[in-house]
Computed example of a mutant assay.
Amino acid sequence: MEFNRDCLKIDARAECIRLEELIKKQIMGKLKRGGAVVGISGGIDSSVVAALCVRALGKDRVLGLIMPENDSSPDSQRLAEELARGLGIDYIVEDITPALDGFGCYRRRDEAIKRLVPEFGPDYKAKITIASKPLESDSINFFKLIVEAPDGSIISKRMPLNEYLQIVAASNFKQRTRMAMLYYHAERLNRAVVGTGNKDEHELGFFVKYGDGGADLKPISHLYKVQVCQLARFLKLPENITGRAPTTDTYSAEVTQTDFFFGVDFEILDLIWYGLNDSIPSDEVARALDLTAEQVDRVYKDIKQKQRTTEYLRLLPLEPEA
């Protein structure tokens, strides 16, 4: 098939029906559980998964869990609650801030930030961004700390490895706390935890091991982000969710998933990735997307690097050889 911008278009109706049947079979049959628990964030992935579970199991067998914390955008909770009411499912709001305080999440993170920006305090906001933009240049991957001061000024620092690792490790308490909360409610209700990660997140490593990567089933992990968006449109999810830019909702200063990790917008990234997976020459992909072959080659290289460096996230625990 000739490579073009429509390569990732799918029959959204047929795929929804297939996934609904699979969800019901896996939860009721394989896992022998009575329903689903889904963490809903106000984003498109969790909204699609929640809607699929309702169609598969019925609204009375689906619980939505909303888990804000100190750094969460208020929009996330508002949109998640609107989604739950629209789907007709029960939902519970669990503020995980006290648990994160107990783990020292914010304190450990701020310790590392203050080593780079000593004046950082409660009224400041911070985020991490990735410096490399494969479509723009062939630069080395590194991360920057962006701090927003109370007066609106911006401080940008290239992150040394130790500070980067500590900030990420501390922030990952958030996803792991949410995973524990999901399993609490799943176990008390004899239900399954349904994961909401898509192909981009799973295969390129944009998830936390034993955090948002922890689930009993992952029904959309085979779908590119742009394909999840197609399901969302078929399911007629609210436009304020489908049109919202994907964010990490992890740092006090808002940052998109593109700026934090992927480096390329999904509409282009997914098509280039499809070309890579199908061994399509970079010049052919470039012609279809109005890019240069050099740009496509740089994205190919970046995808391979992300897959290689995050492979350990996808590995099962290692065991002694028989």
Rank of each mutant, 00 (worst) to 15 (best):
E2S: 08
F3M: 07
N4E: 15
R5E: 11
L8P: 07
L8R: 05
K9L: 14
I10C: 00
A12H: 00
E15F: 12
K32L: 03
K32C: 01
K32W: 01
R33P: 07
V38C: 12
G39A: 14
G42R: 12
I44E: 03
I44C: 09
D45Q: 04
A51Q: 15
L52F: 03
K59N: 13
D60I: 05
P68W: 04
N70K: 15
S72A: 00
S76M: 03
A80M: 06
E81I: 10
E82D: 15
E82Q: 15
R85L: 10
G86V: 06
L87E: 11
E94L: 02
D95V: 01
L100G: 03
D101M: 10
D101W: 06
E111C: 13
I113C: 08
I113A: 10
K114W: 07
R115F: 06
L116P: 09
P118Y: 02
G121N: 04
I128S: 09
I130K: 12
I130T: 08
A131C: 04
P134G: 04
L135N: 07
E136Y: 08
D138A: 08
S139W: 14
I140E: 15
N141D: 15
N141F: 13
F142V: 11
I146Q: 04
V147F: 00
E148Y: 08
L161H: 13
N162Y: 15
Y164R: 14
L165V: 12
L165H: 12
I167S: 05
A169N: 11
R178A: 05
L189Q: 09
L189G: 11
N190T: 11
V193C: 02
V193I: 01
V194K: 08
G195I: 01
H202S: 15
K209M: 07
G211F: 04
G213I: 03
A215W: 02
Y224A: 13
A232Q: 11
F234V: 09
L235F: 13
P238L: 09
P238S: 12
N240H: 14
I241K: 07
T242N: 09
T242V: 03
T242E: 05
T248V: 05
T248H: 07
S252R: 09
A253Q: 04
E254Y: 08
T256I: 02
T256N: 02
F260D: 02
F262M: 11
L269M: 02
G275D: 05
L276T: 03
L276W: 02
S279M: 04
I280L: 05
P281E: 02
S282N: 07
R287G: 11
A293G: 01
D297W: 02
D297H: 08
R308G: 03
E311T: 10
P317G: 03
P317F: 05
L318H: 15
E321C: 13
